[in-house]
Design a protein around this nucleic acid. Sequence first.
DNA 1: CGCATACTTTACGTTAACGTAAACTTCCCC
DNA 2: GGGGAAGTTTACGTTAACGTAAAGTATGCG
Lengths: 132, 132
Amino acid sequence: MSKKQTYSIGELAREFDVTTRTIRFYEDQNLVNPARRGQTRVYSPADRVTLKLILRGKRLGFSLAESRELIQMYQPSGDNRNQLLALQDKIQQRRDQLNQQLRDIQALHQELDDADQRCEHALTALENPDHV
Amino acid sequence: MSKKQTYSIGELAREFDVTTRTIRFYEDQNLVNPARRGQTRVYSPADRVTLKLILRGKRLGFSLAESRELIQMYQPSGDNRNQLLALQDKIQQRRDQLNQQLRDIQALHQELDDADQRCEHALTALENPDHV
DNA sequence: CGCATACTTTACGTTAACGTAAACTTCCCC
DNA sequence: GGGGAAGTTTACGTTAACGTAAAGTATGCG
């Protein structure tokens, strides 16, 4: 009944549409930690989630270092007060950045709509040359 | 009454918090076309807007090539039907990408909120060790 | 058995987006 | 007229994020 618990590097590469080189590179950067069966890498569902988070970060323009930081935020290691406060600070910074991105997206969306409208008008003008 | 109509490279660099090298690099990439007074570059309000668009693109993770394409979308050059249709296609692709980014942002926002909550709990637990 | 397929390591190559340094001109100011 | 301050060109350097190639190992299959 349970979902498959391990993945090969090729499976993940196909699923997320990246190369195996990319996944190995992420391991080099300590972003994923696959187990080994002999020489061969064996990925866990946790590794898969990590990959997903990295790729989502990429879509938002985050560097790997930033994505690593974000991922670490979800598993706070040090449990002392100052580290927690510092973490909350970083979280807030990310929220601010996301809100800026939201504003940027809305503006860009509007401009794309306008550009599309101008296209439409240009097209109907081409089909209707007599219309003033 | 009218706003200042020209800008020096230093002014723009300060306003947008980039180096002059960056602005000259964008010129090299044919993203801005400042006039010249002698040797010195003189930027128009249009150049300033272009700069703004580039930097907004950067915040959304766009490459300079992508931003260039976006900017050109707002000033369609070729007025033949096929070009207009191709342009609309690109516009739609960008909209799809923006919508994906929106979903990514919402998911990430939620996760940041959760992480923040866990921080809060950990902090109150630190101040209230007796609470089970 | 031979061969294809998928995996591995090692290592050099590549592109984008600037950084940085050197050496020069212009303009303004006291 | 000497010296900042801001501008210029030219050119080599740097970092991130992989690409690409070579050479080897393991595994299933007809």
